[in-house]
């Protein structure tokens, strides 16, 4: 088998194993709940029968490994279980399926993340590469000063500064991003503009700095000096000699920051009351609605693992040592 294929398959297997352990960790979270949590959810007046029925629904009468198998099997079929909220002591169950809660919100979050990434990635790469090429120039130093300040700010400070400037003082954008499934596309874009801008500022700063460092590191290689000593033009040195070796570090930078974006979404959604999965997770944490929290954590972690997996695979398939084995 071609070594590239072997390495990629190995990496994929690693990803699956990681995902398995992560799901195990997320599942076992429930095991740490206090014994009387069913009463806490159903209320003090819950009858023994109601509690017993709830415990049976959760499978607490079965051993943990069987419950894990049931749970993971259901998750793979898209069934994320029933929410804890909406239950009552009398046994009336108005709880909703977690999948139904998450579905539309996941769509909103992906919309926001995608909108941000589409602008952020090209912008950050452009800034990172140009500052690396003109290292030490006024342009480089100003971009660096601005980004160093931005990465030191918590996301909510950036968000509120934007609200102060673009909502309160100059009403350009709405402060609340109250979108739903029926919102038309451009109105959606308009209403999501401020959360996207907040994320953009934070992500671009991080991604630009990491791109710059990676490119500077690359330009210090002896083969780049050799290319210069061959009398090649600066453009040729960059395009022919630096770029083919830059894919791996750049893919890592992009993946790392998109993963970061996934997390940054949580705070930003709360600030702008954006109906996404991040806000849902925070609300569920406050309400201690464990099945929803688990599902959200699984989705976030899965995305994170997937992004890193993609970056690693890009690094593998652009590595000349693996592409052209001895």
């Amino acid at each position: 088998m071609h070594p590239i294929l072997t390495t990629v398959l190995q990496r994929l297997a690693m990803g699956v194993i990681t995902l398995f352990f992560v799901s195990l960790i997320i599942f076992s979270a429930v095991e740490f709940l206090p014994g009387d949590f069913t009463e806490a959810i159903l209320g003090q007046s819950a009858t023994d029968e109601t509690v017993a029925a709830f415990r049976a629904e959760l499978g607490l009468d079965k051993p943990a490994y069987l419950r894990y198998i049931d749970w993971i099997g259901a998750v793979m079929q898209g069934d994320l279980g029933q929410s804890f909220s909406g239950r009552s002591a009398s046994g009336v169950d108005r709880s909703r399926a977690v999948a139904d809660l998450i579905g539309p919100r996941l769509h909103n979050t992906l919309f926001l993340a995608l909108m941000t990434a589409l602008v952020a990635v090209p912008l950050a790469l452009f800034l990172g590469i140009t500052t690396a090429l003109w290292r030490g120039s006024f342009y480089d130093r100003s971009v660096n000063a601005v980004t160093l300040t931005t990465i030191s700010m918590p996301e909510f400070l950036v968000a509120y500064l934007l609200i102060l400037l673009l909502v309160s003082l100059n009403p350009v954008f709405p402060s609340l991003a109250n979108i739903d499934a029926d919102t038309p596309f451009w109105e959606r874009v308009y209403k999501s503009a401020l959360p996207a801008l907040t994320l953009l500022l934070v992500i671009v700063a991080h991604m630009m700095r990491m791109t710059r460092a990676a490119i500077i590191n690359l330009l210090a290689s002896p083969y780049i000096e050799m290319a210069r000593l061959k009398g090649l033009s600066p453009a040729t040195v960059i395009l022919r000699h630096a770029l083919p070796n830059a894919w791996a570090p750049i893919a890592n930078v992009v993946a790392f920051n998109l993963a970061y974006l996934v997390v940054g979404v949580v705070v930003v959604e709360v600030v702008f009351v954006y109906p996404g999965i991040g806000q849902l997770m925070v609300d569920s944490v406050s309400a201690r609605d464990i099945p929803v929290v688990q599902a959200c954590a699984l989705i976030f972690a899965g995305t994170y693992i997937l992004l890193n997996l993609i970056a690693d695979i890009v690094s593998i398939v652009t590595n000349p040592r693996l592409l052209h084995p001895r």
Binding site: V22, I26, V263, V266, A297, F300, A301, Y304, I305, N308
Partner: peptide, 8 residues
């Protein structure tokens, strides 16, 4: 452990 984002 690091495969799960810290905040999440």
């Amino acid at each position: 452990l690091m495969a799960i984002p810290a905040l999440i």
